[in-house]
Every structure is written in C-alpha cells, then in structure tokens.
C-alpha cells in the first residue's frame, strides 16, 4: 500500500490538522509515514502545502516526486491547481470550492472551477457551506478530508478514531461536530463519484 498525498491551502486554513488526522490514523494502522510541512514566513496568508506519504514499506524521500501524487487534497480551489504537476495523470483532486481571496489578482471563481472540472478525476464541494450547516464553519478542512477519505487506503473507522483523539481535548461537542463533518464530506464524495 502506498498513498502519496499533496495537501494544499492558504496559511491558517488548517491543512496541518488534516495531515495530523491522517497521520494519526496511519500510525495507528501500522503504516510508515513521512509528512513535510511548511513553517515560517509562508504561513502568513501565503500558499502552503504539505507532502504526506503513507506506505506499508519504508519511505525514502520526505518529498513526493513530480507526477507521483495519488491525490491532491485542497481547502481552496485555486490552491488545488497550483500543485497539478505533482499529480499522477489519473490521480484524484479533492477540493473545497469556496475561494479565499487575499490577493488583488485572484482569478474568476467560475474559471477556477472550470479548470477543476476539466480534470478526469475530481471531487469538488463547498466545504465551508457544509461545515456551516453542521454548525462549525471551522470544520471545512475536515469536510474536505471526509470527501477525500474514499480514496485513502486507511479504514474509515481509523480516521474517525483520529478525529476523536485529536479533538478529544477540546470537548465532546467539537468531536461530534468534526465527525459529522468528516461523514458528510465522505457521503457527498461517494454519491458524486458513484463509489
């Protein structure tokens, strides 16, 4: 088993939380893991990415080779496109459709979504809206993770456990809300892709 995943977003959008959930679940599943993060200056509203590698065999590089990623998981639509050279031609792109505009020359949202729709295998969903309906707008990142979960080779229960573990300190209510976000993201992805 080998999953190479690029996580993408804007500094502060919570991609490291996604990484932490998958990471915990992977370790609990006895997998090897390497996960390269971005710290420092870029975290101030700049584009950030994380290379997340899971494998049943020992992993060499902390970075995923170009053209080697099985999946891009992005919390922001334009950011999902920035890392396309990393994606395998038949890889999955899973992204939030809600834009994060903090630059003057942000492209038309419609055009961004069109580019995403052109990819052979993609799931796009308005994770901010879904998270809002569940009652916690901050859980948009977990919704996106849920939408990516059918394509990650880790049992879904392990991801649920990881959410419980990582949000456990912050109270049951937050755990339940994030579990709901995870499940709803998964449900939508499954119904959209017929998986």
């Amino acid at each position: 088993m080998k999953n190479d995943i690029i996580l993408a977003g804007v500094g502060g959008q919570g991609i490291l939380s996604i990484a932490a959930i998958i990471g915990y679940a992977a370790v609990q599943s006895g997998l090897y893991l390497k996960q390269a993060e971005v710290h420092g200056m870029s975290q101030r509203g700049g584009d950030v990415q994380s290379h997340l590698r899971l494998s049943s065999e020992e992993i060499a590089s902390d970075l995923i080779p170009l053209g080697g990623a099985d999946m891009i998981i992005s919390v922001e639509p334009m950011e999902s496109l920035r890392y396309l050279p990393y994606l395998k031609p038949q890889g999955w792109l899973v992204t939030n459709t809600e834009v994060f505009v903090n630059i003057p020359n942000y492209p038309e949202k419609e055009d961004v979504l069109k580019e995403i729709a052109n990819l052979p295998r993609h799931v796009s969903l308005d994770a901010d809206k879904i998270a809002g309906e569940i009652g916690n707008k901050k859980a948009a990142n977990v919704v996106v993770l849920g939408a990516a979960s059918p394509f990650i080779d880790i049992p879904f229960e392990k991801l649920e456990e990881a959410v419980g573990f990582l949000f456990g300190k912050k109270g049951d209510e937050l755990v339940e809300m994030n579990l709901a976000a995870l499940r709803e993201g998964r449900r939508i992805a499954k119904s959209n892709t017929g998986n």
Binding site: V10, G11, M41, S42, Q43, R44, G45, G46, D47, S61, L63, I64, P65, L66, G67, G68, M78, E79, L81, R82, Y83, L84, P85, L87, P89, N102, I103, N105, Y106, P107, E108, D111, V112, E115
Partner: peptide
Amino acid sequence: PNIVGEALGFKTGELLKVPGLVAKRPPS
C-alpha cells in the same frame, strides 16, 4: 527526487500543467 533523478539519467515524464490563471499568493 526529480532533480536527483535527472542527474542519474532518469527522465521526468509528461506532467500536468499549472493553469495560467493560478496567481501567486505571497505571504502578507
């Protein structure tokens, strides 16, 4: 891995391209 691969004689295959509309997002 790619830079090192090329020094070893491996070719990086055809890659998906970043669409032209993707704008730089510097830290702020």
